[in-house]
Amino acid sequence: MLECKKDLFLIDEHVHYLNNSYMSPNLKSVEMAGVIAVRSMSKPYLIDPSSFFKPLEDLKKSFAQVINLKNHERIAIAPSASYGLANVASNLNINGKKNIVIPEGQFPSNYYSWDRVAKEHNLEIRIVSPQESIENRGQLWNEAIIDAIDKDTLLLACGHVHWADGTKFDLRAFRKACDEHDALLIVDGSQSIGALPFDIEEIKPDALVCVGYKWLFGPYGIGFSYYSERFDQGKPIEENWANRKNSEDFKNLVNYQSEYKPYANRYMAGESSNFINVPMMQTALQQINAWEVQNIQDYSENLISSYLDAFRSIGCRIEDAEFRCNHLLGIKLPGHIDIDAIGKSLKANHVYVSIRGNAIRVATSTYNSKTDMDKLWSVLYENHMV
Rank of each mutant, 00 (worst) to 15 (best):
A173K: 15
N95E: 15
A264I: 04
R312Y: 03
D188T: 04
L18T: 05
E143A: 14
L329F: 04
G194W: 00
R74T: 10
P197W: 06
S305F: 01
K6I: 07
L196T: 15
Q282F: 11
M281N: 05
R312G: 09
L253V: 03
E13L: 04
E135I: 02
P25Q: 14
S272P: 12
N87T: 08
F198Y: 14
E57P: 00
L18I: 03
G105H: 02
S133M: 12
I102Y: 00
K54M: 05
N358A: 09
E259T: 14
I288S: 05
K61M: 05
I77Y: 04
E57R: 06
D147Q: 12
F169L: 06
K245W: 11
V293E: 02
N349E: 14
G335Y: 07
G138I: 07
W114F: 13
L92C: 08
L18S: 05
A81S: 12
I149T: 07
L303K: 06
F107V: 14
S133V: 10
L56D: 06
K43D: 11
K28P: 09
K5H: 08
T167G: 04
M23V: 12
Y260D: 05
F52D: 11
L208F: 01
A284E: 13
A264L: 01
R126L: 09
E239F: 10
E271P: 09
K5Q: 15
R172G: 04
E124V: 13
I337G: 06
H121K: 05
R361P: 02
G212M: 06
R172W: 00
L171V: 05
T364E: 05
Y22C: 05
R356F: 11
L8A: 09
Y263T: 05
G221C: 04
E73A: 12
G166I: 00
W163K: 01
E201S: 12
H350Y: 15
V254K: 13
N368L: 00
I314W: 01
S80M: 03
K261G: 05
S133W: 10
S50R: 12
F198R: 07
H160M: 15
G218H: 02
A164I: 10
I36T: 13
L154R: 08
K375E: 11
G166N: 02
A290D: 14
S80Q: 07
E292C: 02
S40K: 15
C325A: 11
L56Y: 01
K28A: 09
V161F: 07
N19V: 02
G315I: 06
Y256W: 14
